[in-house]
Design a protein around this nucleic acid. Structure first.
Lengths: 231, 231
DNA sequence: CGACGATTGAATCGTGCGTTTGACATCGGC
DNA sequence: GCCGATGTCAAACGCACGATTCAATCGTCG
């Protein structure tokens, strides 16, 4: 797991700060080296001097945020699993370990919360579309680890079903990160302006219910139209 | 609602076909006019001659798929609401009206199913990031209409809560569309290779449970960690 | 001070982009 | 048989991009 170290000041740091800000705001493709150097008030050549290439800088920005988020996810997951030592971990706590690090890392970062979430969302959203290998490795590792934990918590859900449900969960989280601001406009403000903490709690509850669907003996069988389920 | 008409053959049609294929496969930003004309084996100038600009062609491709999907969504929603005439519509049927048109329109389109879903996913995913106004209008209209219907079906869920849950639902659907192929690699094949119909049914069930969370009197109260819910 | 590696700066490279131009072909209607 | 409308084509335009060059400057240590 590559360490990302940065000087506390100097033009390299200024470039990195400008880059992460712009990447978060406009998207990875939409930001040019000249945009970055202009915002940082530094000569164009500096990006290639300090980082080697635009792509290397981009990869560095991604790892800078992806790594701590994923480390905290794994740490939290191990904490709750240890807490329930062998017994089935409540779904909500697994999902919490998956999404809560977004909020805690956002507070730690030097980006504004809004930009941090956008940046994180973009990183997760663009998985598999020509991303560097080490970015994809990060995600693969996390998915595997959490899938194992979910499988233990939901022993009656078929693996194939579970994989898809985790996929739906991830999609909801990514959409939440990337489109947090848009939902306001689209809902005419009916979404309110909750903190991310509150929204994550909503999300955990929603996703837990979806993952758990069909495993509660008390629950009446829902009837979808042409929906045929295989368990 | 703008009509999108195309000749059945000729270079204009060839360009459009090449464009939609490439946009679906590589993404809207990653495809150049030269890529399109090269695939269609037609001179570069033809794009601007027939469509006015690259952006106009892009908008045409988007509307071409967005409009029929949304029309079918609204038609299906009205059908189920009429069927239940005033009574509460089962959640699953509303969600079905929202997602099922993707599969039916995919079958009608001249794109391969895989590319159709990718294209649709990209259109929905990039909402609000500098999209043309008439694309955003399309989505706003759909969201409003379905939110009203969901609100009737879930009278005990607070509006603010509901808006977020619909947001989570949309995110899951978009992720499903855009990353359908990636999930295979990430899950080491544990996802199987179900048809989109089957996956949509899974999704409906997952999303319905999430939307309904907290409204089933039989359901035991879930306990999340620092999760504080406001109802 | 002087030397030397690290850093900066202006200018420039080659490339690919969306778009435009103007010459040329095709063809139905008077 | 000519005309204008409709397409097609090679070529070029102006621009922005990532990257590179090379001289100038800085900071530090002998």
């Amino acid at each position: 797991m590559r360490e990302i170290t940065l000087p506390e000041s100097g033009s390299k740091r200024k470039l990195f700060d400008a880059a992460q800000q712009l990447f978060a705001d406009k998207g990875f493709e939409a930001v040019s080296v000249r945009d970055i150097t202009q915002l940082a008030n530094i000569n164009v050549a500096a990006v290639n001097y300090h980082f080697g290439s635009r792509d290397a800088l981009l990869g560095m920005v991604m790892m800078r945020y992806l790594v701590p988020i994923n480390e905290e996810r794994l740490a939290r997951l191990e904490t709750v699993e240890r807490k329930w030592s062998g017994k089935a971990v409540p779904l909500e706590e697994i999902i919490d370990a998956f999404v809560r690090p977004l909020a805690t890392q956002a507070r730690k970062s030097d980006l504004s919360e809004r930009l941090f979430y956008k940046l994180a969302g973009r990183i997760f959203a663009e998985q598999g579309e020509g991303m560097p290998a080490r970015i994809e490795d990060q995600l693969q590792q996390i998915i595997e680890r959490f899938t194992r934990s979910f499988a233990k918590a939901l022993p009656t859900v078929a693996m194939e079903e579970l994989v898809w449900r985790i996929h739906f969960l991830a999609g909801g989280m990514i959409h939440l990160l990337t489109h947090q601001d848009i939902i306001h406009r689209l809902s005419n403000g009916a979404s309110g302006t909750p903190t991310m903490e509150a929204t994550l709690s909503r999300f955990i509850r929603y996703a837990a219910a979806g993952l758990r669907e069909g495993t509660e003996p008390a629950e009446p069988a829902p009837k979808g139209p042409q929906a045929t389920f295989d368990f």
